[in-house]
Design a binder for these strands. Structure first.
Lengths: 192, 192
DNA sequence: ACTTGTTTTAGTACCTGGTACTAAAACATA
DNA sequence: TATGTTTTAGTACCAGGTACTAAAACAAGT
């Protein structure tokens, strides 16, 4: 065809440019644009470490979404799903390779703990909340690729002490249980 | 399980809330969150006219992306893929139902024309460019669901007159050819 | 012309995240 | 018990991929 065709190097350069300005393009779109096969585009993207469409869209969407419920200060481990401050909350953790023990697919336990603990702290309506005690129980190993849903609920409130219970599950299966005793610092202490 | 379960009305209300604050949640995530089946979530989304994940991500990403290459004034028909101002450009048009002739799946011809013409105008480096003449040829009908790739190239420039050729294709098949004679208004005329 | 390496394409198996449909089970209400 | 609604299961299919093997096409060197 009359349109200029590119060699590999130039095609890949333009591929990057096109996807930077328009991440909506599918491999099929790009194949048509460059006049090559879909397999060639996929080989290009693999070489250039350019993720697939749904990942690109997530990256764009994430880069711009303001999360009104993101914790100030300490980071929530997992994605916040729901937060009823003073009462209950839910978060979702997707297990990625860097969270797993080397040479295995098992999620490192501290991630489960961190997810539960950060959620427990999040449901408390306080600027500074510190975990005093935690009683936790790991029910079964969690694997790479699984998603952990954590639910936290405030059970008891006594003065500046909170007992928060967290139940974490994969599908219908409970994988982690935790009870957290959390202290809320009073305003005077904070301002000192 | 100890977590509160919802009736349909309440579940749907929360579903909307959850997806508004977090469009990344899949149907499987939501099924787990609400403790129902994936089919139920899909029925809910259908009732609520909530699109699937990839559409939600597109909506979020689109809502925030600044398109540095968007035309000022006149709207480009189709998505801009590449623009070499003064030389060449490419756009991609996805055929949607409202672009088709009633009771058929054929794309209305004026969309092909509009895509080609707007692209031709876009490649010219001018604030005001008006199409004087156009010679176009529709090679075959285009159907709902197909994507039209238009390529424009400036063939001749003479004073303030441009001859732009546009070739539109679906896959490898040419569906439209057009030659546009475009006049660029001089600055004096514009400022009057 | 032959050889070798690179690039591209074809084909296949499989996956995720869906739509859409039929059918049946479970539930709620009268 | 009957009826309507909600939920679930199963199946077929689709879009947009990953990943792999194998072969064709191409380019460069000899």
């Amino acid at each position: 065809m009359a349109w200029q065709s590119y060699n590999k190097t130039e095609r890949q350069k333009r591929l990057v440019e096109y996807l930077e300005s328009n991440p909506f393009l599918t491999d099929e779109d790009l194949a048509q644009i460059f006049g090559v096969s879909v397999q060639t585009i996929r080989l290009d993207r693999m070489e250039l470490k350019i993720p697939e469409l749904i990942e690109r869209l997530k990256n764009v969407a994430k880069g711009t979404m303001s999360r009104p419920r993101t914790l100030s200060g300490g980071e929530l481990v997992g994605e916040l799903v729901d937060l009823d401050v003073g009462s209950r909350g839910i978060s979702l953790l997707t297990v990625t390779p860097e969270m797993t023990l080397s040479k295995t697919q098992f999620l490192r336990g501290h991630y489960l703990f961190a997810q539960a603990n950060s959620l427990a702290v999040a449901v408390i309506d306080a600027e500074v909340a510190l975990t005093g005690l935690a009683r936790v129980s790991f029910k079964r190993p969690v694997l790479y690729g699984e998603k952990v849903l954590a639910r936290a609920i405030i059970k008891i409130k006594k003065g500046n002490k909170y007992m928060v219970k967290v139940t974490s599950q994969v599908k219908d299966e409970i994988v982690f249980l935790g009870k957290f005793l959390i202290f809320v610092a009073s305003e005077e202490v904070v301002s000192q």
